[in-house]
Write a protein that binds this DNA or RNA. Structure first.
Lengths: 142, 142
DNA sequence: ATAGTTTTTAGAGTTAACTCTAAGTCAAGA
DNA sequence: TCTTGACTTAGAGTTAACTCTAAAAACTAT
């Protein structure tokens, strides 16, 4: 059960170029080659790609993802490092989620603001945009 | 009430270099210069920086942020474009938040997995990592 | 007044993560 | 077999967003 690089590109949405780049960077150390040199991806290589997308999606650099993979290949002596890495990533992710929630509030405010002045003209209640000024004071101090 | 570039750098956590870069890219069109050529930031410039950080934090490129600023400077004829931009950004943000939630589940699984095998050795219940294989099938089909 | 710190500019350099090219090899269908 | 499309490599090129440099000018504290 093997997939060509093109099939994997289609499945994952990554390009074949990107998949080769990931391999070159050491992120896909398990991908086999056929007798004639073609890459043959297995289901477990797809599992790795799922994990890579997850870590990348939470802002981890390819370099740090490679560090994890290197630890993985080093075996059981690195179990603690790997656990700690995921714990750090979880904290980072929680921070990100709470940041996004704050960004969402600002964007909702902007949508309300523009909706209001498009409906009622610029003399509407939001005129002086007090929320953002308050926000500035909260964020940067007075 | 004006701030030097160094004061703003301290307030925002951006470097003075980055602030100059933003200005060069057209993101800070309202920053004044003193008679001798020094930048003088006002509170309203800090408001802009809050908004820029918000949009950047939701993944908008500086180029797109500049587009918004250009629309802003064009005046009321662009109110609808600006509203639509924020609505698009809100959708993007909702998608991001739901993605992060999924990533969080995977990372929680990994933390449980590593915690288990560190505690009980690699013959634990998580041995064959079935969750990620199931996830691969869900994500990429087969 | 002078020493030390900040700011100015134009422009060069860096980094991460792709993205593409060229020239050749491999594989599958008519 | 021929052709067409997918795949191979090494290496060059691109893009976004900084990041830094150098030399000069401007503030600030004694």
């Amino acid at each position: 059960m093997g997939y060509s690089i093109g099939q994997v590109a289609k499945k994952t949405g990554l390009t074949a170029h990107t998949l080769r780049y990931y391999e070159k960077e050491g992120l896909l150390p398990f991908v086999k080659k056929s007798g004639s040199g073609l890459r043959v991806f297995s289901d477990s290589d797809l599992d790795w790609l799922v994990l890579i997308e997850c870590l990348k999606g939470t802002g981890m650099s390819l370099k740090d993802i490679k560090q994890y993979i290197d630890w993985y290949m080093e075996g059981d002596s690195t179990l603690n490092q790997r656990l700690e890495m995921f714990k750090r990533q979880k904290l980072k992710l929680e921070e990100q989620m709470s940041q996004l929630q704050k960004h969402m509030e600002k964007i909702n405010y902007k949508i309300a603001y523009y909706t209001e002045i498009i409906a009622n003209g610029s003399e509407g209640v939001f005129e002086r945009n007090p929320e953002l000024a308050a926000e500035r004071k909260r964020v940067y101090g007075k």
